[in-house]
Design a protein around this nucleic acid. Structure first.
Length: 426
RNA sequence: GUGACCGUAGCUCAAUUGGUUAGAGCACCGGACUGUGGCUCCGGGGGUUGUGGGUUCAAUUCCCAUCGGUCACCCCA
């Protein structure tokens, strides 16, 4: 094997780039429908933009180096800090709420695995300046429509939703003290992965009593059943927080995405900065990694940018989504790129084709012809191989001056035309 | 960062459990079908068997290392 791209990095051959463009096109379409405008920032940022809030450990996971001006820099691993800086700098001048989206290429220095490379593109959609749960509903609806736009349904993808505020109230209500919240979150996060007794053991080690432990598992199980869950919520004294979540769910109904959404307390999301409703999108078969994740982070802009504004957003990577679209047959075949192939017979030359091509191109058509000198039969073969929509043949002995033969590739229909008139109609 | 499995042509795979010059299909390039098309036929290019060592008369095959891929941890996006 000749050396390829760096580990975890991809070469995009035309086939792959066509798929990438298809995904980006769907994303931009949905962002537009929801009134989001596109922005971008630098792919290289000061290292402390990321260490300031995530701590020095984060450096292990970054592509970072010292530049020639002795600055500590890093390739961006996520877009939110850049967004926070940009919004904070002009916060007063912008109409709220701000709806911004971006499709940055992000970098993480980690061992590559399926669905998880060292580089990927990620749709980021964020709303800044709105604290009401209607914004949360709007956000998850846009993420779900970013599935629909590719022909995926709620048979293919499920949105799992939790709420940090509700969860905190519940955990306090069942007797988990503040300093044990982290352990409780970790256990919830691992609910599907690790067996119950392992989780119990960990919680016990963290100091969580047996009564709160039992109620924790009861809560997680009950989330799927609304009446059971409502009772547990009342018992834990978290009714106010639950009412907010129910308002959110009602909004998703109004937005037409309720049947994609499932309440699931095991959705914790690693990022510590989430403060409210959080969600993830998974393929329904559970074969792939998360497609998308996001939520509300009302305090992040203040800590990163010094401006206190409520905010929420999600990131959706191109790698897992691409795998899902291929697996479900939703990736379209490459469309024919060529409008016209120009071929010439033996009473002409390559310049006969060039003159026609130049006129067609001036009219905006995509046109190719055989370079060098080739026999007509070969030119026609090439026209077929190139996938041209139609072929125009000029300069054969059968044609008089100014005439051409046009053939549509789709149905093989052929007709003799006046060349200049035909070009003018193309 | 830790552990497990796997590396043969651009792709999918062969090579009689160590034995001649590592093959086939697809793809690509060219020729024929004496100049209007997806067919057919013929030919061609392309591999240091991921790389480097070791064992052996002999290594794609066995051993070690390394690089890469995959998977599980870790962590998250």
């Amino acid at each position: 094997m000749s050396p390829g791209a760096l580990p975890g990095f991809r070469d995009f051959y035309p086939t792959e780039l066509a798929e990438r463009s298809f995904i980006f096109g769907g994303w931009r379409e949905v962002a537009r429908e929801y009134g989001f405008v596109e922005y971008d920032g630098p792919p290289l940022e000061p290292l402390d933009l990321y260490t300031k809030k995530s701590g020095a450990e984060i450096v292990d996971q970054l592509y970072n180096f010292t530049d020639k001006g002795k600055r500590e820099v890093a390739l961006r691993p996520e877009m939110t800090p850049t967004l926070a800086r940009m919004v904070a700098a002009r916060a007063n001048a912008m109409r709220k709420p701000v709806r911004w989206f971006s499709i940055p290429q992000l970098f993480r220095y980690e061992r590559a695995q399926r669905g998880r490379l060292r580089e990927h593109f990620q749709l980021n959609m964020d709303i800044v300046g709105e604290a009401d749960v209607s914004a949360d509903a709007e956000l998850i609806a846009s993420a779900i429509d970013a599935m629909r736009v590719f022909g995926l349904t709620n048979e293919d993808v499920v949105a799992r939703v939790s709420d940090r505020r509700l969860l905190n109230a519940l955990l306090r209500g069942i007797g988990v003290p503040e300093q044990q919240l982290g352990a409780a979150y970790a256990a919830l996060d691992k609910l599907d992965r690790d067996p119950r007794d392992v989780l119990e053991q960990r919680l016990e080690t963290a100091g969580v009593g047996s009564e709160p432990r039992a109620r924790l598992f009861e809560l997680a199980r009950a989330a799927a059943n609304e009446s059971d869950f409502a009772r547990l919520v009342r018992d834990a004294g978290a009714s106010a927080e639950y009412d907010e979540l129910r308002r959110y769910l009602a909004h998703t109904e109004a937005l037409g995405v309720r049947d994609w959404v499932r309440l699931d307390l095991s959705i914790v999301r690693g990022l510590a900065y989430y403060t409210g409703i959080v969600f993830e999108l998974f393929d329904a078969k559970g074969e792939l990694r998360a497609i998308c994740g996001g939520g509300r982070y009302d305090t992040l802009l203040e800590s990163l940018g010094g401006v206190s504004l409520p905010a929420l957003g999600f990131g959706m990577g191109d790698v897992v989504l691409g795998e899902l679209l291929r697996a479900r047959g939703k990736m379209p075949p490459a469309a024919p790129a060529l409008d016209v192939w120009v071929a010439y017979g033996e009473s002409g030359s390559v310049e006969s084709a060039m003159r026609v091509a130049a006129k067609l191109r001036a009219r905006g058509r995509s046109v190719e012809y055989a370079l060098g000198h080739q026999k007509l039969a070969r030119q026609l073969k090439a026209a077929h191989a190139a996938g041209a929509r139609q072929t125009v043949v000029v300069a054969t002995p059968e044609l008089s001056d100014g005439e051409a033969m046009v053939r549509r590739m789709a149905d093989g229909g052929e007709q003799k035309v006046q060349l200049d008139a035909w070009i003018a109609s193309e």
